[in-house]
Design a binder for these strands. Sequence first.
DNA 1: AAAGTATGCCACC
DNA 2: TGGTGGCCCTACTT
Length: 542
Amino acid sequence: MPAPSRPRKRPTIIVGSVDNSSSSSSSDDEEEEEEEVEDRVDDEDEEKGKGRNGSLSGKGAGKKAPAIIISLKKVCKVCKEEGHQAGFQGANYIDCPRKPCFLCKMPGHTTMSCPHRVALEHGVVPALRKNKQTQLDYVFERQLMSQIPKPRVTSLEFHPTMNSVLLSGDKKGQIGIWDYSKPNEKTVYGSIHSCIVNNMKFDTRNDIMLYTSSSDGTISYTDLETGIGVLLMDINPNGWNGPSTWRMLYGMDINLDKGLLLAADNFGYLYLFDTREKVKIGESILIHRKGSKVVGLHCNPTQPDLLLSCGNDHYAHIWDIRRLETQSFLASLAHGRVVNSAYFSPHTGSKILTTSQDNRIRVWDSIFGNLNLPSREIVHSHDFNRHLTPFKAEWDPKDSSESLAVIGRYISENYNGVALHPIDFIDTSTGHLVAELIDPDLTTISPVNKLHPRDDILATGSSRSVFIWRPGGLKVEDKEAERKKEIIFCNTGKKSAKGKFNESDDDDDGDDFPSKGKNKQQKKYGGKSDKAGSSKSKIVKI
DNA sequence: AAAGTATGCCACC
DNA sequence: TGGTGGCCCTACTT
């Protein structure tokens, strides 16, 4: 990480500035699938006598050039062994057979034959969705500003009371405010943080105020109307002394009852802040393995004394806020790898949902029961972390049964020969995939997703844009097929999203962002685009 | 337009 | 035990 500069006091405010130039469509990158290796290139019969080598210099003129031998062995890209190949074939990725299954991590088979990657029996989805129009209702794309590249979204948060307002935080530290009922109004605060915005929480008692935590090591309390923020906490008071000492804030949550802000860093420490007195409370407390990142914090929605934390040490811990000391956790939830997120259920707070880099979503049905083992483990592809914001399964706050969750999928799906990455809706009480969002406009992996607290709306953040989807009903109540249809229905909801966008785009600011050039970055694969798309996703209950 | 790179974890010694 | 090279489907910049 480059040395983060200190956040400036006065934020930059960019309103409604749109880069239109970048939306010109580029020619199709026809990417040849797998160049057949030429074992031998022989120029013998090529333009014989013309002396390709030597029309100017006499050297070698008239002499036949020796045959050029290129010996390229077909070697697996993954294990470098001969005899097989891994990688994309068309839009399908073939695993290296010498490696454990990419999906479930067990040896003996590959992703394609993984028992967790079963073709769904309901048949309807692959056939139907191919014919559907885009289900985009609004797309916020690349309009942040002209000079600054596309937002790489790292966090999303809906406004607690204003239904059409969504906030986004990104890799650069910018905070975007989108009112999707007014697509032409957007505000970006550029200098609240100097790098990744990891967490945003509204002050629900005064909901124009926003708490944010960032990898720049600060907590900011920002007035969203003016963009003017107060620096509440800076855990690098001595500035930049190299990457090994720089502290970054990842997890953050607000405990309204106790007037507490809790935040945790990449070395395992928890910080407490009194939001009323505006002072830091006590010393930081080691709550995960020393030196390992605390990835997430969540306060229980019904029991103010309970805190949930998760970290890179492969654990999630439940704490009593009244007794926070190293190792004093009430319970410890073991995971196979890094825990990307851990959330109490939104209403009762009695369930726990975690996402781990071992490609499993785990559910504990009751925090009052035996917590030694999760109630369920759901195999799901989300383990890529190096260059991406970690995937996090998020509860649907509208689901009173506390079972529906949304999470982006890493492994791609063959969509008419294009590899796309769906967003999955999972019934965590059964492990079933109840719906998946696949769309030609959704070309990048989407690790950040948030369901609206009241409306049937999904916000998706990816490496280059913020999407708002209106997927119709997402309630978990009917038969699975019904629910799938609801998603498909949403696909058809707008016959021409394009037309709609253009309609609303008569404001002469040159902003036609949603409709133009949106597919230009799609990877096209020369290979067979047949019904390989029916290789359905794999969500399965263990 | 191929090569570089930002970037995080983990295995390895 | 810390330092470091290597990655399993990236995405973007030059």
